[in-house]
């Protein structure tokens, strides 16, 4: 187990090795036989990568910060309120005491709840490796379900979130049970006067952003029509049938949640 970033860098790459943060995805996948890395590099004894820092326009979240720590952080609550809203819905207290934002991101599941907050916060991923550091927007970092641009000898050091205190945050997740549910569909948004940011979970190969609908929201002015907004929003999704829900059910849920988002925002404004 590496104790600092220098050691971590020297241990990565080469053979089939996997980084473990909270292990809440990795150990489940290993147990079910879907993954059998020859070596696990645990971040448990690392120094650093555990801070939440105020960078002015952005907040930096270290890769070892747990979901529970995020929920307790006043800086996050004040400057990125969408994040705790989403994180509160993840797993159980036991899972949140171990799970990390970086693990959720690198896992790149279309149902990854916190990834939605990262899209809405225009997040930047800070990636380190033997060849130095590079930065990438979350939308280009994630390439598909379970796929990112991370190469074998790289790791995520931190994630930077744009502060969004002036936006009205909303997050709705429909699952099968209230607790512990992996989402059947989820809709998150940030709205400020003229701008809307919106993202959908579990209804496309990755978290989906309804760009056409967002543009329409910003340009339509007086002529704004909820139906048209919803129609454009639905162009962003490609839901599938699976064990948890049918595609038809998923689209219906998204449509309803989009409408609810507009309703709640109006009532508030």
């Amino acid at each position: 187990m590496p104790v600092d970033e220098r050691e971590l860098k020297s241990m990565l790459g080469g053979e089939d090795c996997k980084i473990m943060a909270g292990g809440t995805d990795l150990l489940v996948r290993i147990r079910s036989g879907r993954l059998s890395p020859s070596r696990i590099v645990s971040l448990a004894r690392m120094k650093g990568m555990d801070g939440i820092l105020d960078l002015g326009e952005e907040v930096s979240i270290g890769s070892r910060v747990t979901m529970s720590e995020l929920l307790k952080c006043e800086l996050i609550a004040a400057s990125c309120p969408i994040l705790p809203m989403v994180v509160r819905e993840i797993g159980s207290p036991q899972i949140r005491n171990r799970a990390t934002l970086a693990g959720n991101l690198v896992n790149a599941s279309p149902a990854g709840d916190s990834i939605m907050a990262l899209y809405l916060s225009n997040a930047t991923v800070v990636i380190s490796g033997v060849n130095g550091e590079r930065r990438e927007k979350v939308s280009s970092f994630i390439k598909g379900p379970g796929r990112t641009t991370l190469s074998r000898d790289e790791y995520v050091g931190a994630i930077l979130l744009e502060k969004t205190p002036g936006y009205f945050p909303q997050f709705y997740k429909v699952g099968q049970r209230s607790a512990m549910a992996i989402a059947v569909a989820s809709v998150g948004s940030l709205i400020s006067g003229q701008e809307i940011r919106m993202a959908f979970g579990s209804v496309a190969p990755t978290v989906a952003v309804p760009e056409k609908a967002c543009e329409y929201f910003e340009k339509a002015g007086e002529k704004f029509d909820d139906g048209e907004f919803a129609r454009l929003a639905m162009l962003a999704i490609s839901p599938i049938d699976d064990v948890r829900a049918s595609a038809w059910y998923r689209s219906t849920v998204v449509k309803n949640l989009v409408q609810r988002t507009l309703n709640v925002w109006r009532k508030k404004g």
């Binding site: 187990m1 292990g23 645990s42 448990a44 004894r45 529970s68 207290p93 036991q94 171990r98």
Partner: peptide
């Protein structure tokens, strides 16, 4: 569920070296 340093966690998702 067990408690590690005051926090409840699932011991089925922890590897022993982590309790060092």
């Amino acid at each position: 569920t067990v408690i590690i340093d005051g926090k409840a966690v699932n011991s089925c998702l922890v590897l022993v070296p982590e309790i060092d």
